[in-house]
Design a protein around this nucleic acid. Structure first.
Lengths: 349, 349
DNA sequence: ATGAAAGCGCTAACAC
DNA sequence: GTGTTAGCGCTTTCAT
C-alpha cells in the first residue's frame, strides 16, 4: 500500500482534483473554477467540454478547499448542540432547523450534551473546530461567557429552548414560566388545592422557570405552598415515576400534579396507572407528545411548538450570517397552547 | 468594513492563524504545529511558550486546513442520512451512532430524505461534498449503485434499517420479515383468521419485507389471504387511521391488525379507540414506542433494537475507516423481541 | 531541536 | 474569454 493510500482499504486511485478535470478538458484550472461557480466569461463551448470532463471523472469539488480561500470564508455548515438528538422535543426542533438549512444549501452538524454542563464545552469545541458558520445551542452550562471571544470574532450563535447566561446571545423559546402558571391555574380552577410540581434538574433553565410559574399561580390563588410537593432533578421517566409514587403515598397526598416535561409526564402517568389512580388525580403535562390523546384518560398538556422554535431560530441564525441582523438580541417567546384532553379536567377529590 | 470582513457584522479582527501564534511565541510555525500535534523534538521550554501564545490568542487550529494536507486526509466527520431525524426510531439510532462517533473524536453531519428516493441523491451529494470519512445511510432510492464509484475511490458506507441494492454495501438491520411473521403468528395463535396488514410505502425495504413476513405466516397457517386486508403506502398516522377505519367498516372486517411501524400503530390505535373497538380487535405493532404500555389496552409489539443497530453500524463503519474490515459485507440481522402487553392477546371474535 | 520551503485543492487578483 | 500567479492555514519534507 502506498503511503498516501487512505485508511486501510483497497486501491485508492489518487483522488480527482480540479487539475485532472482541466487537463482532460484541455483548459486551465481557473476555467474549470469559473464553470462550477457559474462565473461569466466562459464560452458555452468550453463550458460544455469542462462539464463533460467533470462528469467523466465524476469529480466533486472539495468544499473545504473552496472555503479556505473564499472571500466570505463560509463553510455552509452550521452546528447544532442539543440535550439529546433522541429527545422527541429536540428532534422536532432539529428537523425544522434542518429544513431551513437545507433550503439554503447548509448542512447540520448535530450533537448532544445530555444536559451535562461540562459536555456543553467539549461538544462545542468539537463543533467550532470544524469552522461552522453558526451554532444553534440548547444551553446547559451555568454560563455561555466562554463563547464571547468567538462571538466577537464573528461567530454566530442562537440559543433555543432555554435562555443563555453571561453572554448576549439571542434566544428563541417558549415562555416556560407562563406555561407552567397556566397549567397550574387550570388545575386550581378545577378546585385543586394541593398540587404537586415535578420538574427536571435545576441546571436547566426551563425547569427553574416552570417551578417559578407554578409558584406564581399558587401564590396568586393564595394557596399554601408545600415544599414536599415540589420535586426536582427528575431527568428520566423512572425517577419521575418513583417521585410520583412517593408523593402519592404521603399522608396528605396532592390531588393533582403538574409535570415539568414530557418524560416526567410519562413516568407520572405510569405510576398513576399502576396505582389505578389515573382517574382520581388531576394531571397536566408541560410539552405535548404524540400519544397523549391515546391514554386513559387522555393527557391534558400545555403544548410547546418545537418546529416553530426551530424554524425561528434557524431564520435568526441565517439573518445573522447574512449580516442583516446583529449578533446580539433579546429573547423571543413562542406561544404555548393549553390542550384539554381529560387528565387535567379531573376535579379535586 | 474591510473587504475581507466576514458576513455582515462587526469588527471581525482578522482571524488568528498559526503564524500569529508563531510570531507571538517567537518560533517558526512548524514548531507550533509540532506542539499542537504532540510531535517530538520540541524542548519543554519552547513548548510552554507556544502553549501560552495559543492561550493568549485563543487560537484554535482550522480542522479543514489541517486535513487538506494531512497524509490520511481524514476529516473526522461522518455523514448520517436518515428518513427523518425526528422519527423516534431514527433518532434513537442517531443517538447511538453519535455516542460511538464522539468517543472517537468524530462529529456527525445529520440529514433527512423523508423517504423520497430523489432526495437520497441530493442529500448524499451535500454530505459527500463535505468530504466525510464515511456515511451511514438509511436507503430509500431503488438502487445505491450511484455510490459505487465513490466506494471504489475509498468512501466507506454502511446501511442501516434497510438493505441497499445495486452496490455491495454492508447493512445492519432487524430481520423485518421474521419480525412480521412472528407478529402475525402470534395473532393466529389467538384464533384470528382474518388479519389485516397495514404497511408503509413499498419503496421502503422494511415495508416490503414485513408484508412478506405477514404472507409467510398466513400461508404457513393455511389461511386465506384477502388482498383487501393488505394496505400499503401508509406514511403517517392520518393515512393509517383512515385505512384502519375503511378496513373495519368492511362487510367482513378483520378481527386483528398487524401494524407495519410505530406511526402506523398510533394511527390504527387512534381509530380503534374512536370506534371503541380497542378491546375487541387484536393489534400487534412492529417496532416499539415509549408509551405503548400506557394505552388501554397496552400495545403488544415486536420491538426492534434501534440503539443496538446504530451502535453496530457505527462500529462497522469505523472498522472500515480503520481498514480492519473490508468495505463490502453481507447484512447483519439484529434480533427483535415480542413484547406481550395486551392488545395482541385479544382473542378472535 | 528548529525552521524554510513546498504543497494540499481550491478561489482571488491580475495578467493577457 | 482565458490562463498564470499567489495565497487560504495548515502539514509534510528536508535542510540545518
Amino acid at each position: 500500500m502506498t503511503p498516501l493510500s487512505p485508511p486501510g482499504n483497497e486501491p485508492p486511485e489518487a483522488r480527482v482534483t480540479i487539475r485532472d478535470v482541466a487537463r482532460l478538458a484541455g483548459v486551465g484550472i481557473k476555467t474549470v473554477s469559473r464553470v462550477i461557480n457559474g462565473e461569466p466569461n466562459v464560452s458555452e463551448h468550453t463550458a460544455v467540454r469542462v462539464r463533460q470532463a467533470i462528469a467523466q471523472l465524476r469529480w466533486e469539488p472539495d468544499i473545504r478547499a473552496r472555503n479556505l480561500r473564499r472571500a466570505d470564508g463560509r463553510t455552509h455548515t452550521i452546528g447544532l448542540l442539543l440535550g439529546s438528538v433522541s429527545n422527541p422535543f429536540a428532534a422536532e426542533m432539529h428537523r425544522a432547523i434542518e429544513d431551513v438549512a437545507a433550503n439554503r444549501g447548509y448542512a447540520v452538524l448535530a450533537s448532544s450534551h445530555d444536559d451535562d454542563p461540562a459536555r456543553e464545552g467539549t461538544a462545542m469545541a468539537a463543533i467550532l473546530g470544524r469552522r461552522v458558520d453558526g451554532v444553534i445551542l440548547m444551553p446547559i452550562a451555568a454560563s455561555q461567557a466562554y463563547l464571547q471571544t468567538d462571538i466577537d470574532r464573528g461567530l454566530n450563535v442562537v440559543c433555543v429552548d432555554r435562555e443563555p447566561a453571561g453572554a448576549l446571545i439571542p434566544s428563541i423559546r417558549s415562555d416556560a414560566r407562563v406555561a407552567a402558571a397556566v397549567a397550574t391555574r387550570h388545575l386550581i380552577r378545577r378546585g385543586h388545592r394541593r398540587i404537586a410540581m415535578l420538574h427536571d434538574d435545576e441546571n436547566i433553565w426551563t425547569a427553574r422557570e416552570r417551578r417559578n410559574g407554578y409558584l406564581d399561580a399558587m401564590r396568586f390563588a393564595g394557596l399554601d405552598i408545600d415544599d414536599d410537593l415540589i420535586v426536582g432533578g427528575l431527568s428520566d421517566p423512572e425517577l419521575s415515576g418513583a417521585a410520583s409514587d412517593r408523593i402519592i403515598r404521603m399522608q396528605h397526598p396532592p390531588t393533582a400534579i403538574v409535570c415539568g416535561n414530557n418524560l416526567i409526564t410519562v413516568g407520572a402517568v405510569r405510576t398513576l396507572q399502576r396505582l389505578s389512580l389515573q382517574h382520581e388525580i388531576g394531571l397536566v403535562g408541560l410539552d405535548d407528545f404524540d400519544t397523549a390523546d391515546l391514554m386513559a384518560p387522555p393527557i391534558t398538556v400545555v403544548a410547546q411548538r418545537p418546529s416553530q422554535i426551530g424554524r425561528l431560530a434557524a431564520d435568526q441564525l441565517f439573518a445573522m450570517i447574512d449580516g442583516t441582523l446583529p449578533r446580539t438580541g433579546s429573547p423571543i417567546s413562542v406561544p404555548t397552547d393549553l390542550i384539554e384532553r381529560g387528565s387535567g379536567e379531573i376535579g379535586a377529590g
